[in-house]
Design a protein around this nucleic acid. Sequence first.
DNA 1: GAAATTAATGTAATCGTTTACAAGAATAAG
DNA 2: CTTATTCTTGTAAACGATTACATTAATTTC
Lengths: 302, 302
Amino acid sequence: MVSIKDVAEAAGVSTATVSRVLADKPHVRSEVRDQVMAVVKQLNYRPNRVARNLRSRKSTIIGLIVSDIENPFFQQVSRAVEDAAHGQGYSVMLCNNDEDAEKEKKYLRLLRDENVAGIILSPTRQTADHFSEIVDLDIPTVVIDRRVSNVEVDNILIDNVQAAHAMTTHLLEHGYGRIGAIFGIGSTTGRERRQGYLKAFKEQNIQPSSDWVIHTNPRAEDGFTATLKLLQLPEPPNAILTSNSLLAAGALHASGKKVSPFPGKSLLPALTRRPGPAWSYRHSPSLNSPPMKSAIRRPSYS
Amino acid sequence: MVSIKDVAEAAGVSTATVSRVLADKPHVRSEVRDQVMAVVKQLNYRPNRVARNLRSRKSTIIGLIVSDIENPFFQQVSRAVEDAAHGQGYSVMLCNNDEDAEKEKKYLRLLRDENVAGIILSPTRQTADHFSEIVDLDIPTVVIDRRVSNVEVDNILIDNVQAAHAMTTHLLEHGYGRIGAIFGIGSTTGRERRQGYLKAFKEQNIQPSSDWVIHTNPRAEDGFTATLKLLQLPEPPNAILTSNSLLAAGALHASGKKVSPFPGKSLLPALTRRPGPAWSYRHSPSLNSPPMKSAIRRPSYS
DNA sequence: GAAATTAATGTAATCGTTTACAAGAATAAG
DNA sequence: CTTATTCTTGTAAACGATTACATTAATTTC
């Protein structure tokens, strides 16, 4: 493994100069610069990022912890994160916590100990406890998709209540009064969407049957069985609202609909479009900008 | 950030001793060991992995580069890799090269420079060139799913020729003589599976029309359009063989079949089962076992 | 043309660990 | 009771970069 020392020797300069050249810092004769670059190329030198990271306390890796990598939503998220990170010279370390708080804890600690540049996390149900030990440090952290309570941290969410409210109202206004609903269990997302659902009914002064609402694991299988259950009610619903794309896929399958296999295209037209305004709460230091505690802003999303 | 030095001071021992305790090495009085552990717990000390990695030249991160994270196959792979790695105390850094050789190159270099413990790679079409610069180093590397030519490296594959041959033969023997076939373009996988397809025809002394064979991008959309094309032939095929699950999904959709959204379950019964014996070629140093150049073995897969 | 500034480079400390080596204490061997 | 082992611990040198500081050379300023 060729080190910066080898380069310095071969180029007849000090390691400091080599470092300056590589970091594109001023105060180096262009002549020397060229010479160093030539040696770098010739020896095929690549700086050791571990050493660099240790000394400069900077990493170019962003840790992304998703709750379920098989969920198309998180696939889109990870792809988007990766693209954005790439564009800024960062790389993404993708971790899958599988909705498992223990795994999440392990990964959070790993990312901390690896001194990553930042963490993006979609939390599991019981994140809060072990989360504070990360947030207290100065690793910029953003929580996405779900809320984590009792911890001050940047949070990017959609307005779940409003979204579910709009969808439910839409159905009600078109004459579908018996709306079954399948929500993900445990997550704040599911809970908030149910609120929106109930709110819509309340506004129209209709009392939804409690039989219509099912909370279950956010998987296609469970959407399937939940839908069958709904359809087998003595007075089955005439519409179904699902809070999650996998649940929707299962529901469509159960209802005998033909399903397109093109993800994000014809499969789930309603749900893959942004259902409501996106909100972001900022709390902790972020990558490039200064901290902005407890602020709420509405980003322009196109 | 509390360092090993702080722990040493607080425990009244040297950093060497602390290190010994943490690494569970012998030659430490149990009394001292307990004392150190107590301080570690009290100060909530966690060793800095970057420093550790630098000094010991060992990382516990395995880099996994997949060609397309949206492909269910690679989802299963990454989940399996992650589980196995987890079980051995490693973590997985998942990189998505998006079938893009440039991205792959970037990631390979990153993993190298980050000094990962090992690399698992499903290569893109033109991997070979920039690949050798990694393989020459002593980072254990395994290539999966596809072949990479001109480079000696461990390779884990299924027997694509035999698999496609078996499937084609099955169809022929059941009286389906006009078998359309859709293969992934560019990958060795697609090429080898075509070989098996053709071999089966040859054995039965049937001459397949070249119109029946389509090479296209391994995506659901492309499987869809390819199938439509096949079905619009003056004499359309009476069976279709696809070389990839996404292609199959598109094909099923195009043919009007109802598709289940449960990944890996009812969707693609034929293709998600292992189609043939799995082969692994070993060339480079692997994580725990000594190198075993140019050997071929048949692992027991249950 | 002397003083002050800026440029170009090198020396060596530093980041937080691991680990080779040294050294003293305790135990075993004879 | 000496000598040889083994235990226990500490000191200090790595690992491969970055960077604060020092130093000399080249410019600028007045």
